[in-house]
């Protein structure tokens, strides 16, 4: 919708749109205006302020961690957050799981013609707040606009750079027999929140996405327990996909105990209803930690002292060298495989 003044007769170019126009991605005045009025004030920092083709940032000694991630979530706004929170926290958490201190992020937006400018502002503001909370700076970015019908409102890509302090060596290859597996919070919260918000399912819950920046908690953990072997955030594919990936990389067998898994009642009930396994549901605010058993109490203590780690629990252990399998001891003493889902989890019929 265009804001017009009926008394206005001079056909001046209109610049104040309530929706994204193709011209917002055209590189002309509208693009410039959007960058100056929306992105610069929200992401304000000295590197972005250079207004260069890229950001020139000082290099410190040490090792760099680099990651990139694209966000295409539907719906874009959900209980507990929006695509903007995910775009910042997801990349921050990936860097933190490399043992790095996240420093700088880039942000690229692919917008669909007609996307609400108010929603874009809300998302950008959320990103600004999330970046501040995580202590990172958005130093460069890009905006493209695609024709109506050729996108899904908004896609965001963020890339990030972090510094890995000396003495920190985090890798899935480091999992060894004798490690315990810790989950830092309730599992399945994000995936069930997004599913429940989709029109097609239409059931109601009070669950909120767990999206959160975990770098502060992970930094505290590494300071107190430097022997941490593996850190991973179990996002898409859930805990099961991540554990299987670690087991395969390190060629170990991982055993988890169903009785110890932190699953909220609502997630458990929603999974029962939909025929989903909470272990396969996506998370955005928890981390899997592998530490030697002797360090597990200390690790749990540090995690639980953090707002995002209050439900941290030991859920299993690396039992032996092996062929990369993950097994689960059921509540009744039985044993079953923890599998990786094949494609998308599909709700069952009955």
């Amino acid at each position: 919708m265009i804001k017009t003044n009926p008394t206005q007769i001079c056909p001046l170019p209109i610049t104040d749109y309530e929706q994204i126009m193709l011209a917002h991605g055209g590189g002309g005045k509208l693009t410039q205006r959007m960058i100056e009025q929306l992105f610069f004030p929200a992401f304000n920092n000295e590197y972005l302020g250079q207004e260069h083709d890229g950001a020139v940032i000082p290099v410190r000694e040490g090792r760099l961690a680099v990651t990139t991630d694209s966000f295409v979530v539907n719906p874009i706004i959900f209980p507990g957050g929006n695509i903007g929170d995910l775009a910042i926290n997801g990349t921050v958490n990936d860097l933190a799981c490399c043992g790095a201190v996240p420093m700088y992020l880039t942000a690229s937006f692919i917008l669909e013609e007609g996307f609400s400018m108010a929603d874009l502002k809300r998302i950008v503001d959320t990103m600004s707040i999330a970046a501040r909370k995580a202590g990172v700076k958005i130093v460069t970015g890009d905006t493209k606009v695609v024709e109506k019908g050729k996108g899904d409102g908004i896609y965001i890509n963020t890339s990030g750079i972090g510094i890995v302090p000396d003495g920190i060596d985090i890798s899935p290859m480091n999992a060894v027999p004798g490690d315990v597996v810790i989950v830092s919070g309730l599992i399945g919260q994000h995936g069930i929140t997004v599913l429940s918000t989709r029109d097609s399912l239409g059931f109601e819950t009070e669950i909120k996405s767990d999206t959160a920046p975990l770098n502060g908690m992970i930094s505290d953990l590494l300071a107190a327990v430097p022997e941490v072997h593996v850190l991973r955030d179990p996002t898409r594919g859930g805990v099961s996909a991540t554990l299987n990936e670690i087991a395969r990389k390190a060629q170990v067998t991982i055993e988890i105990d169903e009785a110890l898994l932190p699953v909220g009642k609502q997630v458990s009930a929603a999974c029962d209803l939909l025929g989903l396994d909470p272990l396969c549901v996506a998370n955005e605010g928890i981390v899997l930690v592998f530490v030697p058993e002797s360090q597990s109490e200390k690790a749990i203590e540090v995690l639980r002292n953090n707002i995002w780690g209050r439900n941290a629990a030991v859920v299993g252990r690396v039992s032996a060298k092996g062929h990369g399998t993950v097994t689960l001891k059921t509540l009744y003493g039985g044993c079953r495989i923890v599998d990786v889902i094949s494609g998308e989890q599909l709700p069952r019929i009955c």
């Binding site: 991630d69 955030d233 898409r236 594919g237 996909a241 991540t242 299987n244 990369g324 990786v340």
Partner: peptide, 13 residues
């Protein structure tokens, strides 16, 4: 049996 089909790397989010 080696279940290599499970070894499909899942892209990280």
């Amino acid at each position: 049996q080696s279940y290599t089909n499970l070894s499909v790397a899942h892209n990280r989010l």
